[in-house]
């Protein structure tokens, strides 16, 4: 029963990792951009949530309503003002510019919020749990997992059932021809980044309710998201959820063996899958 419990808790944790990963997966799919600052943007969203909740006293889950549009706006401006200039055949500019951005965000957060760990106070939600088939499930992890499913379902719907998603796929297929069809790729890329950071906002708030965070935590979140994307297979959003779950389970099972091994066993699971299935478990880069 202990092991089953570890697996179930790991699965729910995987929902959070899938939320870290979804935005990363989305922008790679649309514009082949890998954003090194992604994790720092998650942490930034958590801090925005902190500011909103302390300023207004509203519940952090409600703060999502404010933080999501703010992060989306940041994403659009960031893409059009900075990242669009880095896109091209050369790999170095986007990589190094987002790396610089990561350092800037981290230190700006240090400057604004100090290095002290913070947490979003969510009252009962932090500890509430219910019994389910002999297991005790936390309400927050279950809620996080539901958010992950809803977000990925929503992204799938946008991608395959809306004009915006059609534009994303068209620009991803062939930028020149998409331009000929009247699609301004700079604007489309801006929208893709806005959407990615909207997801990041949800991830950041849920992270902040679950654990304490500090300005230096971005790198770790980037890595978890990245591992979920690679395990699941590039270009497959449901695969990303599966990747998140595998990572989460590896961590909780590892922690069960030895608490010091939690994060390490997640990385080891990732490296094992990379060794056995270099393209991930469910690759579908074409989509």
């Amino acid at each position: 029963m202990d092991w089953l419990n570890a697996i179930v808790q790991g699965t729910l944790l995987g929902g959070l990792y899938a939320l870290f990963a979804a935005g990363l997966s989305l922008i790679f799919g649309v514009m082949r951009l890998v954003n090194i600052a992604h994790g720092d943007l998650i942490v930034l969203a958590a801090y925005l949530g902190l500011t909103v909740t302390t300023a207004t006293g509203i519940h952090p889950l409600l703060a999502i309503v404010v933080v999501v549009p703010v992060m989306a706006a940041i994403g659009y401006v960031l893409q059009r003002g900075l990242l669009n200039q880095t896109l091209g055949d050369d790999l170095l500019p986007p990589l190094l510019v987002t790396f610089g951005l990561s350092v800037i965000i981290q230190n700006a957060l240090l400057e604004g919020y100090t290095a002290d760990p913070q947490k979003l106070a969510a009252g009962n939600l932090e500890t509430a749990s219910f019994a389910f088939g002999g297991l005790t499930l936390g309400v927050l992890p279950v809620l996080t997992f539901s958010f992950a499913i809803a977000v990925i379902w929503g992204l799938q719907w946008i991608f395959y059932c809306t004009a915006l998603g059609r534009a994303f796929r068209a620009v991803s297929d062939n930028q020149d021809i998409a331009q000929l069809m009247g699609l301004n790729r700079r604007h489309i890329f801006g929208l893709a980044m806005a959407l990615a950071l909207a997801v990041t906002a949800i991830a950041g708030i849920l992270l902040g309710i679950r654990t304490s965070f500090d300005p230096s935590g971005g790198g770790g979140r980037l890595i978890f998201g990245f591992e979920a994307v690679i395990i699941g297979g590039l270009g497959n959003l449901w695969g990303t959820l599966a990747g998140g779950v595998i990572l989460g389970v590896a961590q909780t099972v590892g922690a069960k063996i030895d608490p010091g091994w939690q994060i390490l066993s997640g990385h080891i699971a990732f490296l094992l899958i990379l060794a056995v299935r270099p393209n991930g478990l469910f690759p579908r880069i074409s989509a």
Partner: peptide, 8 residues
Amino acid sequence: LRGAYFAI
């Protein structure tokens, strides 16, 4: 891993 994914 290719390109930026190699980096991470």
